[in-house]
Simulated scan of single mutants.
Amino acid sequence: MVAISIKRGKALSAYSQQSFKQFHFAMLVLVMFTIALIYSFYDPMKPAILQCYIDKLSGSKIPEHLQRLDDVLLAERQPTPGRTIFFLETSCPNPKMQTQPIGLTVRQACAIESAALHNPSYDVFLLYASPRYMDKKAEYPILDAILSYPNVHMRNADLWAFTKDSPVEKWFNGAELFKSIYLTAHLSDFFRLLTLWHFGGTYLDMDTLTLRSMESMPLNFVGLETNISINNAVLNVSPIGYGHEIAHKWLLEFQRNFSGTLWPHNGPGVITKVMRRACCTRKVLELENNPDCCNGFHVYDKNAFYAINWMELQNFFEEKYLDSMLEKTNTSYLIHLWNIVSKFKTLKTESEAPYTVLARVNCPKAYAAAGEYF
């Protein structure tokens, strides 16, 4: 009886510790959201935000040491419709600067490299919403790592030209989007839908790690995050036909019910609402691996892209969970890393945490350029 009581006590203690960790994790996220909300209201740079997405050197002579990235709509090398993986950068590093520098974190570079490595026959395009310039005098070891792949390309995207003749042109020109208190996130939600409406193909968040090829996956797919929600971190539509129709509906839904004060409302909320209306049932879980219900549009189960949910993400950064995390993601196409939380977790490059172990294999060049920390 004593032994049973001790075991039960240990089990309860372990359960309590796990519960405390989850509670602490949830409180951390809540604090982060609160800080972001306060900062958004009182940010002294707020009036200058809109100008950050306009090229201030357009029509003027560019200093010799700077090189402007080509515009995605004007460049000779265009994305291949339906066979391009897109990554987007929608932040504004400093609204008061005349030109915004090119810059990627090593983890963002890892996301891009892993996609390029596993999908060599696909184009991989990184699009910047705020015009970016490369300093010819500077060294970019992390950029060099991803640009060593012949299928990786970087471009600027003039948002106003990019929106022209789209179903949301008039709404976008009204600048309602730029009033959002979560502008970077909401602009990203909008920009990915517009990009897929233009070209079709695959959109991936910059906080993903691709584990295997997606080249043989069927056209038109999304993935369940929970039993009631489809996430927008991974999206694929065909450039014509039904996939393009769905992208059109996503844009119209975004415009119709846009909210600048609700963080997830314009992302997973838009995708979930449209798919519930477009498919044969409004019960999202019944769409799982059931393309016949959606005119051939695939809704993959959680394991495909979101095997690790945000509540257990901490385990992905701890060495003791290596085996369990590798097993959990063994059949996943990619891992979503929930950047709003994971960006605060640093790892030494020699770490044997699940993330670093997988990164060494799936983004070796970015990993080699990381230095002491990844």
Rank of each mutant, 00 (worst) to 15 (best):
L219A: 13
I35W: 14
A14V: 08
E288K: 12
Q255G: 01
P239K: 02
D205K: 03
L12T: 13
F162N: 04
S13T: 11
E215N: 12
V72S: 02
N119K: 02
T349V: 13
F221R: 00
K345S: 14
M45K: 15
K136N: 13
S188H: 06
C279Q: 03
N289I: 08
F344S: 15
T34F: 10
M275Q: 04
W263P: 00
G59V: 03
P268C: 07
E319V: 13
N309I: 12
Y203C: 01
T331W: 13
P264T: 03
F221W: 11
P354W: 00
G241I: 01
T90I: 05
N362F: 01
L127W: 01
C110M: 11
A111M: 00
L194W: 02
D292S: 15
F317M: 12
Y15G: 15
A111P: 04
F125M: 07
H186R: 04
P364C: 06
G201H: 03
G82V: 05
Y367W: 14
L104V: 03
P167V: 00
S188Q: 07
P264D: 01
S180N: 05
L74Y: 08
L159D: 03
A161Q: 15
Y333V: 05
K10T: 14
E89W: 10
S148K: 02
E113Y: 02
F190K: 01
L287C: 05
V168G: 02
H153T: 14
L159M: 10
H186K: 06
F344Q: 13
